[in-house]
């Protein structure tokens, strides 16, 4: 088990060793976002800007203008919320080569509660033109995504989590923005992003008792949204579910529904945060509270299949 933020810290360190173009920024959370690993080995290429996320994004923009590839990290709520307009106007509008790698996304931040639980960041980042929005599901995918983001020229938002996640994808997995069919089933398809791939996989184990075998598809790239591939997958199924540790407004569910409404209309059932703020609690208790754990996902499917 390893949090995607930890895999990010390791991947960033590897990139730092690979290229002296890589610089990292943090806003006083380097121990939590794991940019501390990079900072320790490359202090001259690491900039802690203090508790000033808007300034961090501006400085990252300036570093990219000087020819570097900046990776800027803080919690998702502050990166996507506090610094939204800086990302929109200074980074995305001129399509600067800045990577915003935001940790502690979703409710599994846990005890810190609603003020620190970002359930809106996918929507906030996806609505900005020129942005690429990526959500790794496990440590393996995180490393592949970070390497991809380094090679890609342009602004990228990467959504990372605090909670430990097992390795799910094959060791030789290589991220390519397309949906990844994790498990082939029948009749029902679940599109999942981030930590929900893991939770859906657990739910599918529980659903075996009901003779239900959904297809499980990992969606690591929320923007550009892989519309064509999603429709192709949906065509082979009768029911569509989406699962995300994010508001059902503006996230994966909205994007799947929007995609289908335009070229293959059918009902979509959303598993996610239903227009609510988070709350304090242990990560696993919160997943259960919001119906995002294995039992909650199972029940949601059973309710809709009836």
């Amino acid at each position: 088990m390893k949090a995607t933020r930890e895999a990010y810290g390791e991947a960033l360190l590897d990139l730092g060793r690979l290229s002296d173009q890589v610089v990292a920024l943090d806003a006083d959370l380097s121990k939590s976002t794991k940019t501390s690993l990079f900072a320790k080995e490359f202090p001259e290429r690491f900039f802690d800007v203090g508790i000033a996320e808007q300034n961090m994004i501006g400085i990252a923009a300036g570093l990219s203008l000087a020819g570097f590839v900046p990776f800027a990290s803080t919690f998702a709520i502050f990166a996507s919320g506090r610094a939204w307009e800086q990302i929109r106007n200074t980074v995305a509008y001129p399509s600067l080569n800045v990577k915003v790698c935001a940790s502690h996304a979703g409710i599994t931040v846990g005890e810190d509660g609603a003020s620190h639980q970002s359930v809106e960041d996918i929507g906030l980042m996806s609505i900005i033109p020129n942005m690429t929005v990526l959500v790794p599901s496990d440590p393996i995918e995180t490393k592949s995504i970070i390497n991809w983001a380094f090679k890609y020229k342009g602004p990228v938002y990467v959504r990372l989590g605090r909670m430990g996640v097992p390795d799910l994808l094959p060791k030789d997995y290589s991220f390519d923005t397309k949906p990844y069919i994790f498990k082939k089933g029948k009749k029902i398809v679940i599109f999942a992003t981030g930590i929900m791939l893991w939770k859906c996989l657990e739910a599918i184990e529980l659903l075996k008792a009901y003779d239900i075998e959904p297809t499980l598809v990992n969606i690591p790239c929320l923007k550009p949204f892989p519309e064509k591939e999603i429709i192709e997958i949906v065509r082979e199924h009768d029911m569509v579910f989406t699962a995300e540790e994010h508001s059902i407004i503006g996230g994966l569910g909205s994007m799947v529904a929007s995609t289908l409404s335009r070229s293959y209309p059918m009902k979509v059932s959303f598993i996610g945060i239903n227009d609510k703020f988070g709350t304090s609690g242990k990560p696993n208790d919160l997943l259960s509270f919001y119906g995002l754990d294995a039992a909650g996902i199972r029940d949601k499917l059973l309710d809709n299949i009836k």
């Binding site: 400085i59 923009a61 300036g62 570093l63 000087a66 900046p70 200074t90 001129p94």
Partner: peptide, 20 residues
């Protein structure tokens, strides 16, 4: 050198560029 217009951001960009 940069797309500006939303006030308050140019000095941050300049700091980043100077660092770089």
């Amino acid at each position: 050198e940069a797309s500006t217009g939303s006030l308050g951001q140019g000095l941050s960009i300049s700091v980043g560029c100077a660092l770089g």
